[in-house]
Amino acid sequence: MKLESCRKKPLIGLAFFASMALSSCSSDPRIKTAQDFGAMSGQLRDSTNKLADDIYDSCIRRVQFYRTDTSALREVRDQAWEACERLNKPAAARTREANQIAIDYVEAIGKLSTDEVVSFDSQLDKVGSSLKALSIPSSAVSSIGLPSGAVDTGIQIANFIVNWAANRYRTGRLAEAITCTNEPFQTYTKGLDVALRDGYIEGVLRQELKQAQLFFDDYTTLANAEGGTWRDFAGLSKDSYNTILPMVQRRNAALAYLSIIERTAKAHAELSAIFLDSPEPRTPASPICKTYFVQATTSARIQKPFEYLTNSQQLSPYQLMRTNKIIVSYRDDVKPLIHRMNLNLGTK
């Protein structure tokens, strides 16, 4: 994702355009925060899929720690295996989908915030080239074209106007999205936390660990009862360590992911407060959000791309400071968490 580039053409002789150009590129710190917010989503997607899939994978790993010494024990093991397919597999798929919704949203915010979305340089350059090539015959032997300087200036003005309008539109749409989606996003991330913390980390993963401990404890007790040697006990101890280590790593990865989700929800709430142009927080029941969340796409809505203009296009120095603080703090907090998660999952 391109975060920093913003091609600014010189606006010769039009001093007032210079200051306006600043607002037409993504110098708006709210946009930069939204960019950073979305930039993390790509790095999260693969790892979160692995964690969701582990609701099933952990179950399969756990099955190997069911003892099979007797027919009753084997029967219980077979039932456990069957349950992995019947219960854990669909639950893993649903959790994966649930994670994806959150990541899709963060990614969509990031996508709309990129500079490329509001860059029309390439297309306007083509219009300029076409205009310069325009040749109107003035006599049987000669023709005249449009003055090159006039074409350049015209294209620069057009570029400014299109970029300015596109940025106003984008800021308005981002403001709508972030302020209207904040409440659902906060509730949603709390739901993900329950599913992954209580259901996966303290549930499925803890059970896998417990099953392995019971397995090794049982064989230690049996070896003791039947006069086992120190080598038997040492071997069991080593095996149990090798078994438990990957589980601890999965747990650490999942905890890092939950911290990322929690931190992202916090950054979203902070961003929402800055985008909001009223003292009252928006909910899905607010009039503007009711329109925003209309199920069917109405043609009237999408045919007017420049209708969404926020009342608070300019940020106060205090808001600027707060926005910059959100960017730095979010990036600094989340990057090491992503690194820790990937490290524990063995992905990087």
Partner: peptide
Amino acid sequence: PGALLGLSVKRLKEAVERMDEIR
């Protein structure tokens, strides 16, 4: 919340498409 997030994703994608249409 999940359904609303899904709708929000749709709205954001529509906004990107508007820009593509202008291009």
